[in-house]
Design a protein around this nucleic acid. Structure first.
Lengths: 153, 153
DNA sequence: CAATCGTGGATATCTAATGTCCACAATTGC
DNA sequence: GCAATTGTGGACATTAGATATCCACGATTG
């Protein structure tokens, strides 16, 4: 019942990008530092987001990442599906192939209800909802940068 | 976002017990067979349920397990907490110690809403809800018993 | 006392998440 | 063109947790 760090990283990175001034891009290093996420791992996360169409990447010098949509047009459900695939609580959720037990699987109803609930929340929550309220704040910095985002890629 | 097999095993075993005639107990082997769960692993699951107070165990010959409460008095939330501990979606859910980022963690709200939703469903769903509707049915048997519950403990 | 159960805990295996690395392609400034 | 910078791609390593196995033991019954 845990959400993966990867998913959390993705959201935090997106929020970071959403807080940038219009049209500006952020480097991997900056995001990594601000979120205390290993740079090489974050790189992988960002690639997902790029392929998923939520983020644009700019190559070469002065490159970086920037949002491709308005914060309010990015839902957590989109992010989840890009990072983790379809929302599912048990192996057998859709395909009865896996489950050789034919107790009519009375659990299925519960799992389905669970998914609907979670999916609903994810669908209704956009990046905008995750932006800090106090407007005139600048991008946050990490408390201690214990070894993240050093030399490397 | 996956539920553990262990949790699923626990529920299925409880449902199995709930379907027994009043006051009857079931052996580990029988449960294991019916659910296609390795016996030695199921033993561990059952111990949790015993310690958690949902199930009584009878030692010695003709021993086995039986429910300690009525099916409608056992909620999925109880089962979950016994098997997995407190419901939680991210590490930092309660204690801010883990999280050295002070972006005010706007996600926290979402995680909390998520938990409330799931917790609600778990709290409202009892074992009774998981019993097959068609009354006069006997305890199910597995389709194929491919190697489970053989010799061993 | 012998057969049958569950108990307890150490240990092993497996799998997915997480993290690391390096060669490469794109872009920009000189 | 060249060097520096930035993201890309994929192979690989590590870790952690879930899952599974084992065995010596205690309880119970006939």
């Amino acid at each position: 019942m845990q959400l993966s760090k990867t998913f959390d990283y993705a959201i935090r990175s997106l929020v970071y990008l959403a807080r940038l001034p219009e049209g500006e891009a952020a480097e991997l290093r900056a995001i990594s530092l601000s979120q205390s996420v290993p740079m090489s791992y974050l790189a992988k996360v960002m690639r997902h987001l790029v392929r998923g169409g939520l983020v644009t990447s700019i190559l070469g010098r002065d490159g970086g990442y920037s949002l491709r949509k308005k914060p309010r047009d990015i839902t957590l459900l989109q992010v989840y599906e890009i990072m983790e695939g379809e929302l599912r609580f048990v192996e057998c959720m859709e395909n009865d192939r896996n489950c050789s037990l034919f107790n009519g699987c009375t659990q299925a109803t519960v799992w389905r209800r669970l998914r609907q609930a979670v999916e609903g929340i994810f669908r209704e929550t956009t990046l905008e909802d995750l932006l800090p309220k106090n407007a005139g704040e600048s991008v946050p910095t990490p408390i201690k940068e214990s070894g993240y985002a050093r030399a490397g890629a």
